Computed example of a mutant assay.
Amino acid sequence: MAKKIDTNDCAVSATIDLIGGRWKLTILHVLLRHDRRFGEILVRIPAISRKVLTQQLRALEADGLISRKQYKERPPRVAYALTDFGHNLCPLLARMAALRNGVG
């Protein structure tokens, strides 16, 4: 009889919980090298709606993968950036991009 795997203890399942979904990896890729404002992210991902982008940014922030910095300016300015934890995903994102491009 096959051994049952507890997905709560599985690193792959935990990673998918953090970056799974249609847009999270794309958002992380956009933030890979530069901090970005909401509008900049939206321009780089034209297929995403403002509502979904807002939801995904909040989820990524809640999971500690990105940070949100609000500047005390008029009009208000907010920038998003990868956290140190988010930067840990850089090798994974680079490998996925290489595989997509037929390298590796």
Rank of each mutant, 00 (worst) to 15 (best):
F85A: 11
D35M: 13
D35Q: 13
P46V: 01
K69A: 03
L18R: 10
I27V: 14
N101W: 04
F85K: 13
A81V: 04
T83G: 01
G64P: 08
F85E: 02
L25M: 13
K4T: 15
D84L: 09
L53Y: 03
F85H: 12
G104T: 08
A81W: 00
I16D: 07
S67D: 07
A97N: 09
H34E: 15
A47M: 07
L53T: 05
L32Y: 04
P76Q: 08
K4A: 14
R50D: 14
D84C: 02
A97V: 06
D9F: 03
L57N: 02
E73V: 11
D9Q: 13
D35L: 00
R77E: 09
C90G: 00
D6A: 08
T83M: 07
V103Q: 15
L99V: 03
T83K: 05
E73P: 03
H34R: 15
S67I: 01
S67T: 14
D6H: 04
R58I: 12
I16K: 14
L25H: 02
D17Y: 15
V52R: 14
R77H: 09
W23R: 09
L42W: 06
C90L: 14
N88D: 10
R95Y: 09
A62P: 05
A94I: 12
K69Q: 07
L65H: 04
L25W: 06
D6T: 00
R22K: 15
V30D: 03
Y80G: 00
E73A: 12
E40S: 01
K4F: 13
L92M: 12
L42C: 04
C90F: 09
T15G: 07
R68A: 08
L31S: 09
W23Q: 05
R50F: 11
V12H: 12
L32F: 08
D35A: 15
A97W: 06
R95I: 10
Q56P: 02
A47D: 14
L99A: 06
I45P: 11
C10Y: 00
G104D: 13
D35Y: 10
A79E: 14
A2V: 07
V12D: 11
Q56K: 14
